[in-house]
Design a protein around this nucleic acid. Structure first.
Lengths: 132, 132
DNA sequence: ATATTTATTTAGACAATGTCAAGACAAATA
DNA sequence: TATTTGTCTTGACATTGTCTAAATAAATAT
């Protein structure tokens, strides 16, 4: 993956230490962090970064299409570095969110919904992740 | 539909004016109200009802299985009197949420997800509702 | 170099959502 | 009537998220 500075420059955002800290964490995260999560980690690299800057940067990344945003858990939006289409599984015990590859599921019957113009869709599943 | 008092009694909740006001609104709602929405309407019937009581009652109804709860919009959970399985469509212009009957869509491939024990799932669609 | 825009960050205020505890109130029972 | 039990209200609190004004930093022009 390209480094944070190139990523920011590439989409016309001036790289700053604060933004770099946010980008480095959120775009390589394997989980689905909340804004507060991102703030905590960003402060490790850049202890003075403010909440407003983290929110601003996250919103910028979402606008530019570099970051996904999901409202699938109570309380707070989560961010998702995986910008490929995919489905989600939420572990109701741990709260962990897992990506499910797009082609693992097929949703049939959307064409019957004449009253709706669907711009996006996904399957959301809840349950428990099996131990292995 | 049965009246609010019978519904409450039937699942072991003592009917009170406050709870009746909440139940009457939320269980016959055609939309997907937020807790704040419910509070406003409950206060029309029962002007002194408090926020805590509305939240308590809504949580009770959800626990008893009389009311659904969905985290599909930013900012606040919405409640759903339709407790049949169904999918959802969210109008991204208006924020309105529509129920999509369960048998209108078919989701294939879940059995391939060996690592997950799925207790529930639904398709969430976003877009615009067509004018008619 | 210096002055002047321009962009960015910060701190704190603010509003909204939701939970909690303490005391007030009401109802049922003894 | 007194007591227990259940319910409601108020207000405090934590959290999420946005906004504004002032401070800071960076870029540009002089």
């Amino acid at each position: 993956m390209k480094d944070a500075i190139s990523i920011l420059r590439h989409c016309g955002i001036q790289p700053t230490p604060q933004r770099i800290a946010v980008v480095e964490y959120v775009l390589k995260s394997k989980t689905h962090p909340s804004a507060d999560h991102v703030l905590s980690y960003a402060r490790k690299k850049c202890p003075t970064v403010s909440r407003a800057t983290v929110y601003n940067t996250l919103n910028l990344l979402v606008e530019k299409g570099l970051l996904g945003m999901q409202t699938i858990k109570e309380g707070a939006v989560v961010f998702d570095p995986n910008i490929e289409k995919h489905h989600h599984f939420v572990d109701t015990d741990t709260g962990d969110v897992y990506d499910i590859p797009w082609d693992q599921l097929e949703v049939k019957g959307k064409e019957k919904l004449k009253d709706f113009e669907i711009t996006e869709f996904q399957v959301i599943m809840r349950g428990r992740r099996k131990m292995k």
